[in-house]
């Protein structure tokens, strides 16, 4: 997020530049962009957050999650149901929904992280479909609204904002922007921490890590819980912004969109997946009008893995390094 500051006196400069960028980015689009553009950009930010959760797990732990949408959509459903059926206040419902899906992710993770990465990928796909089936069950139709989904609106305020504020693209942008920065910087720090180094080492050589005295299971479960927390934040912001949840928000379609956004931007670092989310949202607007969103998704997966494995941002960084060698000494982040 802040770039690779490689010598100590450049760190404050990077922080100042980051703060300026953060401030400008939070305020300017509200004045410059149309409501329609902002609405797309908001969707892009939230997709970017989901993509970030997918990308972090890919680049740090070497695991591909194809069930991100079940956390994303599931948190929205729980938020709505906690308010309408269980009479919780909006704030309590958000906390409840967040904790519940993260707990679910922890149990699921504890179960499936033990398998190999390919089986992990299959299992996350299966678990995601399971959640979609749960929501569609006849028995819970009164709660979930079945195939129609739920309109979600709340009375009172969350963080001093009314439901209408969250639905307003201009008012929502600074919230999404702040969340993206907070989470982006957090994940970037984690990847720089001992946990990040441990995860990458486990990804490269799990056996050697065990033979170096490391527990190789717990760090991966922790990583899985962490990325699910990010997906839950993205899902909760989405339901506040969009005002409804539907089975589509739980489905494989959203999971693969997040995957594509991550691949587009590049899975290493925080900037790539977030940029990927924005690119995807605008591209989807273009292609979706012709009913070809899914086709775009499929083609983008193939294209970015086969031809541009580093994604747009990764590719740009590499290009800049080639043109301006020594702009930052690459510190072997893997």
């Amino acid at each position: 997020m802040l770039g690779h500051a490689s010598s100590s006196f450049r760190v404050p400069a990077a922080i100042v530049a980051g703060a300026i960028l953060f401030g400008l980015g939070g305020v300017l689009p509200g004045y410059l962009a149309s409501d329609f553009t902002l609405k797309l950009a908001n969707e892009g930010l939230l997709l970017g957050l989901l993509a970030l959760s997918v990308a972090f797990l890919m680049s740090e732990a070497g695991l591909v999650a194809l069930g991100a949408a079940s956390i994303y959509g599931g948190s929205g459903y729980l938020f709505a149901i906690a308010m309408s059926e269980w009479g919780m206040s909006p704030g309590a419902a958000i906390v409840f929904a967040f904790l519940a899906v993260v707990a679910y992710g922890a149990v699921l993770g504890a179960l499936i992280v033990r398998t190999n990465p390919l089986a992990f990928m299959m299992l996350t796909l299966a678990a995601g479909e399971m959640i979609r089936h749960v929501v569609m069950l006849e028995a819970v139709h009164d709660y979930t609204g079945g195939a129609d989904g739920l309109v979600v609106s709340f009375k009172g305020a969350i963080l001093g904002m009314q439901a209408a504020d969250f639905a307003n693209p201009q008012h929502f942008w600074p919230i999404g922007w702040t969340a993206v920065w907070l989470i982006g910087v957090t994940l970037w720090s984690v990847s720089r921490s001992r946990l990040g180094a441990t995860l990458r080492a486990v990804r490269q050589n799990e056996e050697r890590m065990r033979f170096s005295g490391f527990n190789t299971y717990v760090p991966r479960v922790v990583a899985y819980i962490l990325v699910n927390a990010v997906a839950a934040v993205s899902g909760l912001l989405h339901v506040l912004n969009a005002g409804f949840v539907s089975p589509e928000s739980l489905g494989l379609g959203v999971s693969t969109n997040a995957l594509v956004a991550a691949l587009m931007g590049g899975t290493a670092g925080s900037v790539g997946p977030l940029a990927g989310g924005l690119i995807f949202a605008f591209a989807q607007d273009e292609f979706g009008a012709r009913g070809a969103t899914q086709l775009l998704t499929g083609a983008a997966i193939v294209l970015f893995i086969v031809v541009f494995p580093r994604g747009v941002v990764g590719g740009l960084v590499a290009a800049v390094r080639r043109v301006l060698p020594g702009i930052d000494r690459p510190r072997g982040k893997t």
Binding site: L118, G298, I301, P309
Partner: peptide, 18 residues
């Protein structure tokens, strides 16, 4: 293997859409 699996996922989506 993960990358190849993802490519087959993408190709599957494309084929389904066609």
């Amino acid at each position: 293997h993960i990358e190849v699996a993802l490519v087959t996922l993408g190709l599957g989506i494309i084929l389904g859409q066609i």
